Amino acid sequence: MDLSAATFWWVAAGVAVAAELATGTFYLLMFALGLGAGALAAHLGLSSTLQIVAAAVVGAAATALWHWKRASHPKSAPAASNRDVNLDIGERVQVAAWGSDGTARVTYRGTQWTARLQPGAAAAPGEHRVAAVEGNWLVLAPAPSN
C-alpha cells in the first residue's frame, strides 16, 4: 500500500487531535493545524521541504497566538472562591457569635455549618458573606452595608 504525503499529514493531524481529546492539552490542536497545513501543501504539490516549512510555520504561529491569547486574559479565581464554580460564594449568612477559636456555627441552606473568618477580617457578629468554601467549612467576610 502506497501512502501519499497528504495522507501521511492527515493521519498525523488526526493522531494529534485524538491525543488532544485524551489529554485535554489544547496546544495539540494548534499542532494539528500545522499538520493540516502540511497536508494542504502536499495537495498543492509542494516539495517535502515546503510541506514541513508550512506545517512548522502554521503550527508555531497558531501555538504562539493561543499562548498570547491565554496570557492576555486574567486568571480566574481559585475554585474555592470562584462563583462560577461554587454558587455559594457571595451568599449571605448571619453570625450570632464568634467562638474564642475564631470559628462560628451558622445556619445556611437549612443546615448547620462551621465557619471561620477570612484572614484580616474582624470577628464581629452580624451579617457576613461567603468568601470561599473549603471542604465543609465556610470562609466568611463581613458583608458590606447597603
Rank of each mutant, 00 (worst) to 15 (best):
A77C: 10
A115E: 07
A16H: 07
V130A: 02
L35Q: 11
W68R: 09
W68Q: 02
G102N: 15
S100Y: 04
T25N: 12
A97H: 10
V130I: 15
V58L: 01
A131H: 12
E20S: 01
S4V: 11
W113S: 01
T23K: 10
A54C: 10
A61C: 04
L28A: 09
G110E: 02
T107Q: 05
A71I: 00
W9I: 01
P78A: 11
V95W: 01
T111N: 03
L35S: 09
H67K: 13
G59Y: 00
P74C: 06
T63P: 01
L65S: 03
W10F: 15
A97V: 05
I89Q: 05
F8D: 02
Q94E: 14
D101T: 05
L33F: 08
A122R: 11
W137C: 03
A6R: 07
M30N: 03
M1Y: 11
D101G: 05
A80T: 14
L35A: 15
P125I: 04
Q94V: 11
A80M: 13
T111L: 03
A121I: 02
Y27S: 10
G59K: 00
A131E: 13
G38P: 06
A37N: 01
A39K: 06
V57W: 01
G24K: 07
A22C: 07
S48I: 06
R92C: 05
K75C: 08
T103G: 12
G34R: 01
L44N: 10
A6D: 12
W98P: 13
L35G: 09
H67V: 12
T114K: 07
A80F: 11
N86G: 01
V133T: 07
D84N: 15
H128K: 07
P125W: 03
A131R: 08
A60M: 09
S76H: 08
S145Y: 09
L29S: 12
I52C: 05
V139D: 04
R105G: 00
W113N: 01
W137F: 13
Q51H: 04
L65A: 13
A121N: 08
A37Y: 00
R83E: 15
L65V: 09
A71P: 00
P74R: 15
A123G: 14
G135Q: 04
L33W: 03
T103Q: 15
R116S: 06
K75P: 10
W137V: 05
Y27N: 07
F8R: 06
L40W: 05
G38W: 04
T25P: 00
A79W: 07
Q51R: 13
G120P: 04
A141Q: 11
V139L: 14
A122E: 14
A5T: 12
T7Q: 14
I89R: 03
L138C: 07
A16K: 07
H67T: 14
D101R: 08
R92D: 08
W137D: 12
I89A: 04
R92S: 13
A61I: 02
L138H: 07
A62S: 13
V130C: 02
V11F: 02
Q118I: 06
H67G: 10
F31G: 13
N146L: 14
T7E: 14
F31H: 06
V17R: 06
V57D: 01
A104W: 02
H73Q: 13
W68G: 00
A37R: 02
L65D: 00
V133C: 03
A80K: 09
R116C: 02
E20A: 03
A13Y: 03
A121L: 02
A32S: 09
